[in-house]
């Protein structure tokens, strides 16, 4: 899974970045940092970095981490109702992966000097964003297949360039995640293929219905158009973002249309058409007002998702506390012995 939310930060941050009376020493450090970025060097957590670089990364990596663990919720909805034991085992493995991805990413964010509790608190109080795709409901079993195919497919498009991100702990986490993500996409497509090739008429209709509902939100995962993206230029300059939102989106459309043909489904876009001149598929306008509505908390499941996260955190409080007390007691005993 992936978050598009790197572009959805409060706008005033940009102006605060410009101010700053800097000492000569800091200017020198910044020049050296910029030179390393230009050389394509990796930045490690303990290296000097501009405050705005640090802040941008904390925001992006933590939003990405939040997306991984919130992404477990719509899929968890189908664990007990998976059609076969095989599909249930696959789904459980995928959901466990998402939890692992969240952990790699939280750990990468923590190297920048924020604590796990601070990051989770930002999620639980609604201060931090997560990918808006998870604010849509999973109504049928076909939704689980389509999430693997389209949502994880879009995630892979987004995440592969991040393995070359200038911030090394993030890049290393992304290498690990990308290696595991391919299974997510393939198992989803495989589940859909079974329904399309050997399913009933009703099952095929169910797949098409799921594609109709997830197609546009999947395209929104790449974030706002380049022309309206507030953070893209600076992120590109710093080697945090390597390929623009629109370019990634186009790449995703081109790849997916061919996969849809093999599957035997159509995309809910009458304007989707191969453009010989551009060498790309043209596609219809995206409803950005819907995107912003969902980002700002008014999607079909925003409240439900956040409430489920907060409940899990609160219900687990006694476990976290008990484990800590137990560990301290045994440490004290060992010391005394």
């Amino acid at each position: 899974m992936y978050t598009q939310a790197m572009d959805t930060a409060p706008k005033e941050e940009l102006s605060s970045q410009v101010r700053a009376m800097r000492s000569a020493e800091e200017a020198q450090l910044e020049a050296r940092f910029e030179a390393r970025i230009d050389d394509g060097a990796f930045i490690e957590a303990k290296d000097w970095m501009p405050e705005h670089y640090r802040k941008t990364l904390v925001r992006q990596i933590s939003q990405h981490a939040h997306s991984e663990i919130v992404g477990m919720l719509p899929e968890g909805n189908w664990v007990t109702r998976a059609p076969t034991l095989k599909r249930k085992a696959i789904l459980l493995a995928k959901i466990q992966d998402e939890g692992g991805h969240g952990l790699y990413l939280y750990a990468a964010a923590e190297t920048l000097g924020v604590s796990r509790d601070q990051l989770l608190d930002a999620l639980h109080t609604g201060k931090a964003k997560y990918s808006s795709i998870f604010n849509y409901p999973t109504l049928t079993w076909a939704d689980i297949g389509v999430i693997g195919w389209l949502v994880d497919g879009a995630a892979i498009m987004n995440q592969v360039p991040l393995t070359r991100c200038s911030f090394a702990p993030y890049a290393r986490a992304m290498v690990r995640i990308c290696r595991e993500e391919s299974f997510h996409q393939r198992q989803g497509y495989d589940a859909l293929l079974v329904m399309m090739k050997s399913g009933t008429e009703a099952q095929r209709a169910m797949v098409q219905d799921a594609v109709n509902r997830w197609w546009w939100p999947s395209l929104m995962m790449f974030g706002p158009p380049d022309s309206e993206s507030t953070h893209s230029a600076q992120s590109a300059r710093w080697g945090i973002k390597r390929i623009s939102n629109d370019d990634l989106r186009q790449k995703f459309v081109n790849a997916t249309v061919e996969q849809a043909k093999v599957l035997g489904v159509s995309m809910p876009d009458p304007l989707l058409k191969w453009n010989e001149q551009r060498g790309h598929y043209d596609f219809g306008p995206i409803a950005w007002d819907e995107f912003w509505r969902v980002v700002n908390g008014h999607g079909p499941c925003n409240r439900e998702r956040l409430a489920a996260r907060v409940k899990a955190w609160d219900d687990g409080a006694w476990v976290r506390e008990a484990a800590l007390v137990h560990a301290r007691k045994h440490a004290a005993k060992e010391k005394a012995a």
């Binding site: 952990l103 790699y104 750990a107 923590e110 796990r116 290393r172 484990a323 800590l324 137990h326 440490a331």
Partner: peptide
């Protein structure tokens, strides 16, 4: 080295 995690004690 492959990463880090939070745990209450070594066994966990």
């Amino acid at each position: 080295h492959c990463g880090s995690l939070h745990a209450a004690d070594a066994a966990m």
